[in-house]
Amino acid sequence: MKLFKHFDAESIDHVLEMVTATNGKTALMAGGTDLMGVLKSELLAAYPEVVINLKTIAGLDTIKMVDQECRIGATTRLTDIAASEPIQTTFPALAAAAASVGSPELRNMGTIGGNLCQDTRCWYYRYPDKMGGRIPCYRKGKGPCHAIRGENRYHAILGGKKCYAVCPSDLAIALGALDARVKVVGPTAEQMMPILDFFNVLGTVLKPDELVTEIRIPLPSKTAVQIFLKNRVRDAVDFAVVSVAVMVDQEEGVCRDARIILGAVAPTPYRAFAAEAAINGKSLNETHVAAAAEAAVKDAKPLSQNAYKIDITKALIHRALLSS
């Protein structure tokens, strides 16, 4: 890896000071499982002058139940989330999403904040610089999205415009179904934003001088059912081809407040409002579930090689709802 300076952060304020002092030529590292790859492959022309270690901030890796919500510190590791008893009990979709990431070793290193902030896995974007040079593209600020007319089996079927790379985060999908909020802290302000607002088509809304410090999840209704399903080529190591997280409450056999979030089908986590509408106020029978699955993908515009994701998306919604 190319050289950088390294600082252990003492506090969030300390991070903000350092980021300001370096004019943003800073990379924030939590688990490092994504950033290390970005740096080693020199994916981006801009290489950080400074890497700041967030793991040294005391108390940022805790899971707490406070005031009808769960607060998870940004550097809480995925293994700890997957194994946390309160999370397994109250937020099984999140536990399942955390347990599905990468491999046991990666989960011992990777954090919830890092999982949300990780960069895309688009293989044009990730092309290593030392193999003939990185590939410029729309996402990198120069050139077209090569996936549109190229190799696009893992790219977006929904919501792609200038860039068809998909959001790789599994936790974002589960947190979306759970209606979680993300605490974003910057030099002048801090804000709590709904998790789905945290993402945009080129990644996240984070400015160079901002960071995620906490995720807050409201306690769900006691009768709500949560499911997280992840389809991928292999049952380990792989990122999702399609994932779906569902939270749905049923009263006397009738659905209400369904939240259906799709992963790896769009540049951002994708809320399938049409699918939700197809089951809200109805029972979860085969007909309504099939209608929801169809509704979820009715706007899909697949590229040359990824129409199969439509089938998988429908199958996953179907399975998730019928097991709810």
Binding site: H6, M29, G32, T33, M36, G37, K40, S41, V51, N53, T79, G102, S103, P104, E105, L106, N108, M109, V237
Partner: peptide, 22 residues
């Protein structure tokens, strides 16, 4: 690049990837 497990060591009681750790 953290995807093969060869470099696994145990750090503070947990297996981690030494190639992805500073």
């Amino acid at each position: 690049q953290g995807a093969c497990g060869s470099c696994t060591v145990i750090m503070d009681g947990r297996p981690i990837l030494s190639c992805m750790t500073l």
